[in-house]
Write a protein that binds this DNA or RNA. Structure first.
Lengths: 193, 193
DNA sequence: GCATTCTGTCAATTTTTCTTATCATCTGGC
DNA sequence: GCCAGATGATAAGAAAAATTGACAGAATGC
């Protein structure tokens, strides 16, 4: 009679230490910092993280309260399947073409509500005379160079530091009319890519 | 070192002791029985259940392994919201009509995949000349008396101890053609009631 | 450079958990 | 009734965890 589904912890080596360390670092806390918040000594945190002791429930509870995190969350936290957070440049797929390079951030994530792009427009680069229109919203910031952005009949030249945001159903177009590369970071939701 | 005159864990939100006791009793185990399976002493189980100690993770893990139950399940288990298990006769709603009484088991449960019915057919009771058809499957056992069951053009007379099971889209009809009451316990999925 | 402050680790001591061995109580069999 | 075998609780000692206080290395500021 097993009323509840069993999860990975059943067979896994219960690495409480690594688990705690991961949680602590996830929250950007040092052993002492966490110890102070939790009302325990840093030595204890150290010992637990090294698996040199098996903390009592009450101790682990106190430690987690310093995060704060519930015991249930601690034990159900699945470190193995944690979603990717960092996407090194080299790993960003380039979905651009011609004089435009589009580096998609988080493309490997199954469910996401946005597409983050690192865009590079070479001199003369153009998204096309045929204006773009699609569902959702998009926005971004020009990081380097200049870009000419046309949205809904209005055209502006944006330079480093300028930003934009509009409903994507408005016809829009990006053009680099300068002689330098232009670099933009953008986001669109829902993700078109 | 003060005498343990109060509950050590009184500030904790999770009553580990009561939780363990509930789990143990859920599985019908005595302290000694569980201790034997878990490879610990019955004394420890006793102390933990009285909250006179806060077990180490490793100890609690060992104890739960004897159930067996995963740590995550232990901490996730919600005793407060445990679904109703026993439905006294007096509490069973009668959704029948005329010469048929239908006592629904578990009607108060929000999400269920079946409808369990305790059915009573008085002499002459009939679900109707118009055959029943609906989605899902159903089955049951005749507990007392006799019932004439027609399914998909085939008719049989079932008496105490006989069972039935069929896809509910087949036209079916229940009739008590005897001079005694007939009593049936049935189940249908998905629940029509 | 130097001092300061942070980091994590560690040995020794204190505190708590866990085992051992026992107790009283309850239950079913005869 | 009385015994046999089970139950959960408990005291004391053994074992493990938690604190204390110190250490060395790394990062930060002057």
């Amino acid at each position: 009679m097993r009323p509840i589904a069993f999860n990975i912890l059943d067979t896994m080596t219960l690495d409480v230490g690594a688990h705690l360390r991961a949680v602590r670092q996830m929250y950007g806390l040092s052993q002492r910092e966490l110890a102070k918040r939790a009302g325990v000594t840093n030595g204890l945190i150290s010992l637990i993280e090294q698996n040199r002791v098996s903390p009592s429930i009450s101790s682990l509870k106190r430690v987690l309260d310093g995060v704060p995190m519930a015991l249930a969350d601690f034990f159900t936290l699945d470190l193995a399947h944690k979603p990717q957070v960092f996407f090194p440049k080299a790993e960003l797929p380039d979905i651009g073409a011609g004089r435009v390079a589009l580096h998609l951030v988080g493309g490997s994530l199954a469910k996401r509500s946005m597409a983050i792009l690192h865009e590079f427009y070479a001199p003369g680069a153009d998204t096309g005379e045929e204006m773009l229109t699609h569902a959702g919203e998009e926005g971004g910031v020009v990081v380097r160079g200049r870009i000419e952005l046309s949205v809904g009949g209005e055209t502006r030249s944006l330079s480093a530091g300028d930003g934009y945001y509009f409903r994507s159903n408005l016809p829009h177009r990006f053009r680099n009319v300068s002689r330098e590369d232009c670099e933009i970071v953008s986001a669109s939701a829902p993700p078109t890519f």
